[in-house]
Amino acid sequence: MNVQIQTVHFDADSKLIDHVNKKLQKLSTFYDRIISVDVFLKLDNLAHQVKDKIAEIRVRIPRQDLFVKHESKSFEESFDLAFDSLVNQVKKQKEKKFQ
């Protein structure tokens, strides 16, 4: 599984990158045919005082891409919410495959 993490409008610290990598390693337990995972961490509303943190995750599996996006006040929370949604999608995809 090839993992690529991209940050937009900021530089991520190692603690955040470690958190993302640690969670993504669990993904292979749900579905073993994952080709690659792209994670995009973005800052939104740069012109305003309140900066929303957006986490987008795209998972490539054979013949399909899965995509989730969540937004909250912290990157960890955004990523965790997106990851939970992604796990549900992966599980559904696996169930469809074996029906």
Rank of each mutant, 00 (worst) to 15 (best):
S28K: 10
E56G: 07
L24C: 12
D11A: 07
K73F: 07
N88A: 10
E71T: 13
D52N: 14
K53W: 02
V20W: 03
V3S: 11
V37C: 00
F75M: 04
K96H: 11
S74K: 11
I35H: 04
V39F: 09
T29A: 06
S14F: 14
K96T: 09
D84S: 05
L16P: 03
A55R: 12
A82F: 01
Y31F: 12
S85G: 12
I61M: 08
I61Y: 02
Q93M: 08
I35E: 13
Q49R: 07
Q93P: 03
D80A: 15
S74Q: 13
E95D: 10
V59I: 13
A47N: 15
V37H: 00
K22T: 15
F67L: 08
H9E: 05
K91V: 15
E71I: 07
K96A: 10
A55K: 11
K51C: 02
L86W: 08
I57V: 15
V39W: 05
K73V: 06
A82T: 03
F10L: 05
I57Q: 02
E95G: 06
K97M: 08
S78E: 07
V8M: 01
I5N: 04
Q49G: 08
H48A: 14
K96W: 11
N88V: 09
D65S: 04
K23I: 09
V37D: 00
R33C: 05
T7C: 05
A55F: 09
K42H: 10
D65C: 01
R33Q: 09
P62I: 01
R33P: 03
N2M: 11
L81S: 10
Q93V: 13
L24I: 11
V90L: 06
S36C: 07
F83K: 02
H9W: 05
I54Y: 01
T29Y: 05
V87R: 01
K51S: 02
L24K: 04
Q25I: 04
L27P: 00
R58Q: 15
L81P: 04
L27W: 00
Q89T: 02
R58M: 15
Q25P: 01
F40N: 13
E95S: 12
E56N: 08
Q64V: 05
R58E: 15
P62H: 01
D84P: 03
E56S: 12
D32T: 05
I34S: 01
D32G: 07
N2F: 06
V39K: 02
V50L: 13
Y31R: 13
D32S: 12
K51N: 04
V50N: 12
